[in-house]
Amino acid sequence: MAVQPRSRRETWRLLFLISPSLFWLIIFFLIPLLLVFAISFGQRGIYGGVRWDLTLRNYVRFFDPLYLRIFYRTVIIALMTTILCLIIGYPQAYFIATRRPRWRNAFLLLLMIPFWTNFLIRTYAWLLLLRDQGFINTFWTSGLHGFLLRLAEMIPLPIWDALLRATSTPLPLFGTDGAIIAGLVYDWLPEMILPCYAAIERLDYSLVEAAQDLYANRFKTFTRVILPLTMPGIVAGSVLVFIPSLGAYVVPDLLGGAKSIMIGNVIYSQFMAVRDYPFGSAISFVIMVVMLVGSLIYFRMGSEGSR
């Protein structure tokens, strides 16, 4: 930091100004974090309280293959979510950022409107879409099936049989990992679009023109100029999507039919069902550390990539 040494007075003034956020961080972040850290060394009491016989057992327990497998699955689901958000979100952000300013705001508003609805209600809406008797499958098994039946009557072709058989039963949408990822992508997409949009909007378009003047084709221009320059937005967006996806527990319960378990569900049940606070705290802490280290490496990579 290139801060000049300040006078005493100025230091106190600065401290006064940051005191609300400092206070906030201490009360709602630092103290809970320390509590979690402390509890993670305790043991579950018989009635669910914390017994203060200090132990490392909770951390050892996390490295059981059962929990490692769940953690691995969770990371894969969160990664898929992030990649899908990027594939869908980046072009959308690019589209919005290259419109005229008046339109940009309109598009951003359109993007935000669905998110004025409560998260749970939006997830329930997906439930109604994906269920066996949901909108998609109703269309699949009655709308499309009926249409194909009529078509088969008019034009006899051997391919109808296979198609008719396929449309006679509902698609397995609900209760799958695909449903979980679809729900997560929908929930966190704006978190990807907004940082990408901010990065693309700041892009100096004369650099793109320069690349084209130097005979770079469209693909080269994109990979060598646009992508590196907007990398900070991609990095920020990915982190904003990846972290909450990693902690998801409502979406796997609702859209996954609670049939597949993510690490968030394990933590939730440690607190709400077994009331094993120490183990729940230990899992939370391990994940926090993994995430912190991961994000630091990722940010470093991202900032080097943009240079």
């Binding site: 579950r44 018989i46 769940i70 699955r73 609670a258 378990i261 569900n265 077994v274």
Partner: peptide
């Protein structure tokens, strides 16, 4: 009834059921 020391066992086996894929 409260199963006392067996409570974490129930939860562990339940997690195994959930994690079985």
């Amino acid at each position: 009834e409260d199963v006392g020391e067996a409570t974490p066992l129930y939860e562990r086996f339940w997690t195994e059921v959930k994690a079985a894929g």
